[in-house]
Amino acid sequence: MISTAKYWVFIVLFLSLVLGYSIYNQTFTSENQNFHSQVVNLNDGYGYQIMRGEKIVIFQEFIPGFPGKQKFATEDQALKTAGLVIAKIEAGKSPVLKVSDLTDNNISTGAAH
C-alpha cells in the first residue's frame, strides 16, 4: 500500500514537471514577439529598422523600391513608412512597399539626396 502511494507521488511529480516545462517553453517563445520599428539617423537622412523583439528583421537604409541611395528626408517620414510595413505584416500581407504606398502617404522621393 505504501509503495502504491509512492508510485502516485512519483507520477504526480513527474507530470507537474512536464507541464511546468512546457508552460515555461511556451512563455519563452511567445515573449516579446510584437513587431515594432526604430528610426535610424544616417547623418544626411533617415532610415528605419523593423524589429521583432530584440531582433532586426528588416533594415532599410534607403527608401524601399526606389533606385539609388535615397534616404528619408525627415524622421517622421521614416517612422510613417516603417508603420506602413508593420501594418502590412500584421495584416498577414507581404511587407513589400509599392511606389503608390509611398506617394499616397506623401513620402517625398527623388529629393536632394
Binding site: Q49, K55, I56, V57, I58, F59, Q60, E61, F62, P64, G65, F66, P67, G68, S94, P95, V96, L97, K98, V99
Partner: peptide
Amino acid sequence: DGDDYLSSFWAYDIEGDYWSQKAD
C-alpha cells in the same frame, strides 16, 4: 505570388539575418 507577377526586389543579409527592400 498566386495573384500577381512581381517586380519588387529584396536583399537578405546572411551575417545579420535581416532583409532590405531594394530598387524595384
